[in-house]
């Protein structure tokens, strides 16, 4: 089969379902909305308190990562509504090809939008901070912008892999969102050791000018990549042998 044709078909799948296209757009829209809301109001006050000047610029990532997870989960779960996967596999019976094509299109779309979202967050937010603003030339800033985009793409893939495994966006999102908003946050304050290797904590190291602890910025992103790879592998093992 033609790989390009299958990739194209997967892209049509994403853009033709409101939930998945909406989540993808939200990765950018939420970033802009939160940035405008937060930095135009309390941005300077927060900057006065000090802290890591680069990481402070990426506060909206707390929200955009939820959109990224939703994008991964809903794009995959649309295959599991009403046995849609039967139709998909009738058109592309090579399961490995279908799985790889969907993953690749998700990764590509999430990376493009994630990078734009990440740069937009940084540049827009700083525009409100006057004397506290840091430029893209600030040490670590460019790395954080690029890394932030990659981080969002990896979170998309993490959710996608889990959705292939669990076959439900609701299940995956009700697992991951509380985990990221609450569990990771709480555990992070209690047990600093293990929590460094949680997918969100590790990946967000790349957003710091001066990452603390033994996990470096790129290594942290690597840890998140391993989480995503593990989820995708589990998803693939399920898809490969399951009757649909």
């Amino acid at each position: 089969m033609s790989v390009t044709a299958v990739l194209h078909s997967e892209w049509i799948k994403i853009r033709s379902v409101r939930a998945s296209l909406g989540s993808l757009v939200a990765v950018l829209a939420v970033a802009l909305a939160v940035t405008l809301l937060v930095y135009s109001t309390i941005g300077k006050a927060e900057a006065e308190n000090g802290g890591d000047p680069v990481f402070e610029a990426f506060y909206p990532v707390n929200f955009t990562q939820i959109a990224a997870l939703s994008f991964g989960a809903t794009a995959v779960s649309s295959e599991y509504a009403h046995n849609a996967l039967r139709v998909s596999l009738s058109a592309v019976p090579h399961r490995g090809l279908l799985y790889a094509a969907k993953t690749a299109v998700l990764a590509g779309a999430a990376l493009c939008v994630g990078l734009v979202s990440s740069f937009a967050t940084f540049l827009t937010g700083q525009a409100f901070l006057d004397e506290y603003a840091v430029g893209i030339g600030e040490p670590g800033a460019l790395r954080a912008c690029v890394g932030g985009g990659v981080y969002l793409a990896l979170m998309t893939l993490f959710a996608a892999g889990l959705t292939f495994l669990l076959r439900s966006a609701v299940a995956v999102l009700s697992l991951l969102i509380p985990f990221i908003l609450i569990v990771s946050f709480v555990i992070g304050d209690i047990a600093d050791g293990v929590s460094r290797y949680l997918p969100d904590r590790a990946g967000q190291q790349v957003l710091y000018q001066h990452p603390a602890g033994e996990v470096g910025p790129w290594a942290g992103l690597g840890v998140t990549a391993l989480w995503a790879a593990a989820a995708l592998l589990a998803g693939w093992l399920a898809v490969r042998r399951r009757d649909v």
Partner: peptide
């Protein structure tokens, strides 16, 4: 093949 008329995603045209 037509296996299940419900299989088309409701959100698509």
């Amino acid at each position: 093949a037509l296996l299940d008329a419900q299989a088309a995603h409701g959100s698509r045209t």
